[in-house]
Design a protein around this nucleic acid. Structure first.
Length: 278
DNA sequence: GAACCCCTGGTT
DNA sequence: AACCAGGGGTTC
């Protein structure tokens, strides 16, 4: 599942090969992925444009075109953006292909068909992008902590749900939310409004350390995720709790629990992440 | 703010 | 054959 470190890795892998490329052809195989305009409109808008930059915001990848319009891709769970050298036939589940005038192309492949492509003007970003909370690593600590604490004071639900809320903090998904709470020693069902100042500090630090390390290891590959060159990541070798149901905790030797929190499968160590007594 | 939905492939 | 994975939009 591409979360912030995976999307950032895709960005870094694609940037050198797409920059200054001219889009010569656009093939759309899954029309419902294109929003909010008709697929034909997207083709007309893109053909002849050059890519000037590639940015990331939360889990969105954003192509900046030479007329200042932007194209945002969201990979959702199984989306892949693959750079292909030379002529290459679309593989199964290809949503869209951008072909460049140099003969190479970019394939958006997405088995689950949840991924989206949005064309927009900088002044009118799509709602999901506009509503995103702060960038956990790039934004200032006080901005990130203020967003977390403010949201926490207004809601009843568990801390895990808060970390997954993209309008509160951008880019964490199920893997990194579980890993963050383990590292911070906070139980995932702890009500967000009961998190102490000391715990907020640990949660913030854990987010920094985990996301930075995950980016350095080029993301987590479990089933689907690969970067723009088709390369898997390595951070799966550093996971402490995610996907380790019933296995022993690498810190205390206890057993990793698996339960459902905020609608998501949730992994935690009951010993390292104790529930606070009231 | 929870429940449901979108989807397919892998697992039970 | 049924069930599960889960990001985010929609709906209640």
């Amino acid at each position: 599942m591409p979360e912030l470190p995976e999307v950032e890795t895709v960005r870094r892998s694609l940037l050198p090969v797409v920059i200054d490329k001219e889009i010569q052809e656009v093939e759309i195989f899954l029309e419902k992925a294109v929003r909010p305009i008709a697929p034909e409109e997207l083709k007309l808008a893109l053909i002849g444009r050059k890519i000037e930059d590639l940015l990331r915001r939360g889990k969105y990848l954003i192509f900046i075109l030479d007329n200042s319009q932007r194209v945002a891709f969201h990979l959702r769970m199984t989306g892949k953006l693959l750079y292909k050298a030379g002529l290459s036939a679309p593989e199964k589940h290809t949503t869209l292909i951008l072909s460049f005038s140099d003969g190479n192309s970019l394939h958006f492949v997405d088995p689950r068909k949840f991924g989206t492509v949005v064309l927009y003007e900088p002044a009118n970003p799509p709602a999901g992008l506009k509503k995103l909370g702060p960038e956990p690593v790039a934004d200032k600590k006080e901005v990130v902590l203020f967003s977390l604490k403010t949201a926490a004071s207004r809601r009843k639900g568990p801390i895990k749900g808060l970390l997954l809320d993209q309008t509160v903090i951008a880019g964490l998904g199920n893997i990194y939310a579980d890993e963050t709470l383990f590292r911070a020693g906070v139980h995932p069902t702890c009500p967000a409004r009961e998190i102490t100042a000391q715990e907020w500090e640990r949660i913030y630090q854990s987010i920094q350390e985990i996301l930075t390390k995950a980016i350095n290891h080029r993301g987590t590959t479990r089933q689907d995720y690969v970067d723009g060159r088709g390369e898997p990541g390595e951070y799966q070798n550093y996971l402490n709790v995610y996907g380790r149901k019933e296995e022993s905790c690498l810190v205390c030797g206890g057993t990793i629990n698996y339960t459902r929190v905020a609608g998501r499968g949730t992994h935690y160590c009951p010993n390292c992440q104790p529930l606070k007594k009231v």
